[in-house]
Design a protein around this nucleic acid. Sequence first.
RNA 1: GGGCGCAUAGCUCAGCUGGGAGAGCGUCCGCUUCACGCGCGGAAGGUCACAGGUUCGAGCCCUGUUGCGCCCACCA
Length: 839
Amino acid sequence: MDARYDAAAAEQPIFARWEAAGVFAGRPEAGGAPFVIALPPPNVTGELHMGHALNGSIQDTLIRLRRMQGRDTLWICGTDHSGIAVHAVIEKQLRAEGLTRFDLGRERFLERVWEWRAATGATIIQQFKRLGCTLDYDHERFTMDDGYVRSVLEMFVRLYRKGWIYRDNRMINWCTTCASTISDLEVRYEHAVDTLFEVRYRIKDSDEFVTVATVRPETILADTGVAVHPDDDRYRHLVGRTAIVPLVDREVPIIADPYVKMEFGTGALKITPGHDPNDFEIGRRHGLLELSAIGYDGRMSELAGEFAGLPVGEARSKVRDALFALGLIRKEEPYEHEVGHCDRTGDRIEPLISLQWFMQMDELAAPANEAVRSGRVRFHPKTQESTYYSWMLNLRPWCVSRQLWWGHQIPVWYCPDGHQTVAIETPSACETCGSDRLERDPDVLDTWFSSALWPFATIGWPGDDERLERYYPGHVLTTARDIINLWVARMMMMGIEFMGEIPFEDVIINATIQAADGRRMSKSLGTGVDPLDLVRRFGADATRYGLLKMSSTQDVRFAEGAISEGGRFANKLWNAARFVITQADISVAAAPAGEEPADRWVRSRLAATLAEVVGLIDRYEFAAAVKVLYAFVFDFCDWYIEAAKPRLAGDDEGARRAVSANLLWTLERILALTHPMCPFVTEAIWEHLPGDRGLLMLAPFPQAVSEHRDPAAEADVRAAIDAVSQARSTPDVRLVLPQGFAAAALVRALAPRATQVVEDADAAAVVVEAAAEDPALVRARLDEQLAHARAELERARAMLANERFTTKAPAAKVDEERAKAARFATEVGELEARLRDLV
RNA sequence: GGGCGCAUAGCUCAGCUGGGAGAGCGUCCGCUUCACGCGCGGAAGGUCACAGGUUCGAGCCCUGUUGCGCCCACCA
């Protein structure tokens, strides 16, 4: 064993051995209850980023711990076809060749996507292996593989037959770059400064004008009404009259609708049902015409007359100029508001009316809400439930059709008469009229539609696969906050609907790891940190350790120090093992042996640590678990191994064997406890330990033996450690131990700088003194101790003198103060006596 | 516009139901090269964002202010 743990050299061969064990696909033969996590399927376009690495570390820690605890663990593996993202990648390639996807046509485009996927689609899964993740690679799924496509179509058909999926002409969010609809959840609102115009519309058969306010004058060309509030006295006389839309001279009705805010702008609202979601609703209420002046290409349509063909932005200023020339603009002022942008491309969203497929989720949502409310599904941290409810309690129809090619093509065929035939297999004739001239809907489904069935489509739904039976429902889901509604909520709805049971019990919402300066980590900003680079520099264990330590309920800034600490931790463990292997008698069997205070202390600390770390992981408090583990491992090294050295080197063969057995026993348990978090280094050490022990990954997880708890030994050794620590930092000290102090031998062995270690019948506790030959130092130290004791005594007495404290505080608190007062009074007395003796 | 969260040592963060401010890193001092210099021990360093309030007592509870972050939302 080298003096330094070489992660780079150790990791790959170890991973190969794990894979060879063939247990990643679950192991029902082990007899334990299933424990299942579904990996949030990363985009095929993706590379492992910090979020994936954090999430992978958490999931693998849980999977490994449960596996060692005997559970039949399954970590579902796969990738998402990510429609829009893939289109972006391939269309960019095409642009470089001077082509568009339409030049290729659907079939050739899809061939090209599959070629690309064959070449690069495995990257991110390989990267999870580098992190040490024990995903079920043998059953890797892809949301576009044949079986999965079938599952998606099955879901569509079933929901269609229930009437929850339907086709309708509604207002949708249109992204001109994507040339597709996007869902409400894919719209990101950004602050924008535009101009608010007040425009005068003439009233028909009158000299009067009505003035409306708008930030989008170009939509005037598609206006089909003017609305005022029913209670607005300023306009009451106009309701029912006709206004004339400027530039196009269209006659439109003036209507009254309570949606209009009297106090905003002029109190009169132009209605453009074709280009504004509110106006759309108002238009539907009043039966207004739905006109469209903007096309899917983001340019003005024929309806725009002289402005036809102009991009929207350009049309806006041209229309403004035309209105101004006619003297119809009454006012222009800067106006700040939030404008919807495409989450993927950043383009301004164009609200348009379009014939699309929608999904209505009201009935699906009710049981999903109930699952959270009743506590069957728990969010960690719990505050994230509000994100879930805020969306789930206010659901609107989900536009599921996308005008893309890469994705699950909608399984609906139309005959020339417009009848719909819905089927999983291509039908030969129209269900309604028998026509054989069928054409399939060209659109594909929203990527999140297929993601919603990830927990069960991956393991065989809708078949009767035994894996489906065994591994659904799952247990834990860990993911990022921004997809609680896009994904988590929808999985819950679909899981309940199609499997009759929630897909998981615990939803862990990860911290977002920000760049060191607090900005968002992003490749394009150049603020990203590549987790694989960390793996190369520090090792996978160090990376996992650091990420777990950074995991938190709130967002954290990336700190490389946490990763390098993980590297030191792994090296420390490696060297502790190296000491045991080279210095101890490893022919003895590992056993909780030795009755010295140090022996009992380390076993007691180990039992406490085991229980605490497992408890923390059970509660998903990974950062705290890592800290507790770290503290114990360093205590073990700094004190138990140090205490063992003289005993191993001594002549007492019995002591030598006992210490060796105890060292081995403790080390084995530390390795098992550490393994879920730092699997590589622990497995590497395990291989060096004597005997044929198989893989640590499959070793049974150690129980915390409560009989090993020994508060007296812990207190004694703690006192010894404190005294020795003091002695190490100060030359020429004298250590005074109480008569019969249990850990006296430990103090004598570890305090080389103490000039004297003496037992004193009068000493109440271990005392560190300056050496007798320098009374001034002794005096100074005693003075310091006395001042401290006096201050404590004074504080306790002051509290007890406060009548309101003694009457109002809980009795236990008061008793505690009394005890303190008594203790410090004694200590003050003792110290004063010592000082008198010195003089 | 509504909601949620965060502001604690130079840095990254802990501080659970209110009773003497913590860890790791960094800095400084000492030790040590016989498992580990990715080592050992110690020390310095904080009016717990600000202002009020409740309480015998507040980092923790309440109100407000400031600064950050996030989520939700169709006010022209």
